[in-house]
Nucleic acid binder design. Structure first.
Lengths: 343, 343
DNA sequence: ATGAAAGCGCTAACAA
DNA sequence: TTGTTAGCGCTTTCAT
């Protein structure tokens, strides 16, 4: 198949004996061009299979109408709901999305950021990876005036906006709920405490214990990744503790599911012996047995809020740099896995 | 923050009193430029924060080193493993990925295809959405000589390569396994039969029944989408059948999980009353109870194979147009949900 | 080993 | 309402 030469506005202009300027204007539906000429041009463009050369346009205008979406992983329900929220808004506004994920690696995240910068995105929506130690890779965007919005896993960087839930409150509520159910010794399975989300939930856990007169035992805090293996390992770790904890607050539903499964295989009953609360409200939570008590984390809404703020800023409707932090509602969903007392 | 002007090769050239041609050559590590000059240029580029303008380059060269990845959904484990396989290969080869998903909509798929075409991707890897009725939107790629590879949900289009598993065989094996376990009346829950994957699995189901002297009952074939709701509805549908079927072959693990859950809630035991086989080998399969018998569908491998074929073609190492179809291995994983006979 | 200059396809300021 | 023309930043051919 021979590569056909692309049709350009010059071809259209030649064919119709008009200038490229008119063609260019017609193509962007400039009201200054007469209906007749427009029609002629559109028809011919269609007929000749004309496609805008975006590189030429971008080169010329310096704007790409493209938003970067930079996240740690794509295979998480939460990130996917955020993505669909973002996509809804950006699509409506006529922006394209370039998605990059870092597989939880700082190096890859930095490389992706660099890449998105080179691709000249008009704005960036990002959630940090596990081991991101610095936010220097976002500097170029900020210096150049490209708006950056962080969500979920965030870091306060000057001139950026963050969209989050109140992780502290959620951690506090989850833990309080377990205490209300009679738990006295509560395991906390979480991830890198240098990430805000986990650090905040941990603070909530700690304060809830404190406020209820339970002393914090560092041995009950298990830091791991968000894999199935992490759930199984945490379960093993817990079973080695004597006496056995009677509750567990796990910052991820998938990990919680694996955790519960492992416990049950060793004859430990949930919630009878150990009450469990997860986090995120993934679909898996009501497919397992017992169904999982969890924190509802509204991803779609978060994505919509983040994208709307960004788009409004780009349109000049509002100025993002005034907004420091947006907090989205979230709440505890009580199901079977935590109910020691019956309903 | 004022938008700083981008540094260009002209700035570098001016600063060093050399020509832009030399700078351009140095930047792409052309051996013809002396080491000394190169070093000067690289150092200055670093110091001034120079970043290549990809639009200018692409406009000039006509190649983008970008691959399009066009799929129906992103929130599926299977698609995500394919993606990670693809990404591994493309990244190694120095290609970027643009990801587009159509939310199972034909219209959106066509729009995405058009968009990727405008973005001038060098190649395309795609899996069709549910209700895709035509493949005309891939024509422009083929006509222009841009290689297209389909995987999973495919359609034979001239001059394209497809990467698939043997869905017929899998359907046959899953059904035969249920029959071996003593099932005589087997429900089949699947999705749009106009998509190759479901059509083939259905053929396998039908032939396995036939080969075992069981007559096909169209009322036992339930076509639905791949949602949790689909699982629940299918369960309800089945419970209305008298006498109750004793086996179910469900072409998606997630749907199967919801299905089993619904049955159990109505006091029907799995596998005791109904033996169940799923499809895909998602993580959820061994977190639920009973653990789910399923077909292993190796996404990563599939992604690697598809991407490798594409890249090799682009590099001119091999010619894709010779290859019609690649079939990836897949097999039955027997777990608890289908074992009526014990092990 | 380096430079001069044309041109990729498009937009927009200015002119008519 | 339409046309002319100067670039956007880069690569590459042809000279030197």
């Amino acid at each position: 198949m021979a590569k056909e030469k692309d049709v350009t506005i010059y071809d259209l202009a030649n064919e119709l004996n008009i200038s490229v300027a008119t063609v260019s204007r017609a193509l962007k539906d400039d009201p200054v061009v007469s209906k007749k000429t427009k029609k002629k041009i559109f028809d011919l463009a269609e007929k000749m299979g004309y496609r805008t050369n975006l590189f030429a346009r971008n080169l010329r205008t310096g704007a790409t109408r493209t938003i970067g979406f930079l996240v740690h992983e794509l295979n998480s329900n939460f990130i996917n709901s955020v993505l669909s929220g973002v996509e809804k808004i950006t699509t409506e506004a006529g922006y394209d999305l370039i998605i990059a994920h870092s597989s939880e690696s700082y190096t890859k995240e930095a490389a992706n950021a660099r890449n998105l910068f080179d691709k000249r995105v008009d704005g960036l929506i990002a959630s940090l990876s596990f081991d991101t130690r610095s936010t220097d890779h976002f500097r170029p965007f900020i210096d150049k005036g490209v708006p950056v919005i962080f969500f979920d896993r965030v870091e306060k960087v000057k001139d950026t906006t963050v969209v989050v839930i109140d992780n502290y409150k959620c951690g506090y509520e989850a833990t309080s709920h377990l205490i209300e159910q009679g738990c006295k010794k509560i395991l906390h399975v979480t991830s890198s405490l240098s990430r805000n989300v986990y650090a905040e939930r941990y603070r909530g856990y700690r304060d809830a214990l404190f406020d209820n007169g339970i002393s914090l035992d560092e041995k009950l805090v298990v830091v791991n990744d968000l894999s199935e293996r992490a759930g199984i390992e945490s379960a093993k770790k817990m079973m080695a503790i004597d006496p056995l904890p009677d509750g567990a607050f796990i910052t991820n539903d998938f990990v919680a599911a694996a955790f519960i499964k492992a416990l049950k295989e060793h004859g430990i009953s949930v919630p009878g012996d150990v009450a469990v609360v997860g986090f995120n409200n993934d679909a898996i939570g009501h497919l397992i047995e017992p169904t999982l008590t969890t924190i509802n984390y509204p991803g779609i809404e978060m994505g919509e809020v983040a994208a709307t703020a960004l788009i409004n800023h780009l349109k000049g409707v509002s100025n993002i740099s005034r907004i420091n932090t947006v907090i989205i509602n979230s709440d505890l969903i009580v199901r079977e896995s935590s109910l020691k007392k019956g309903k």
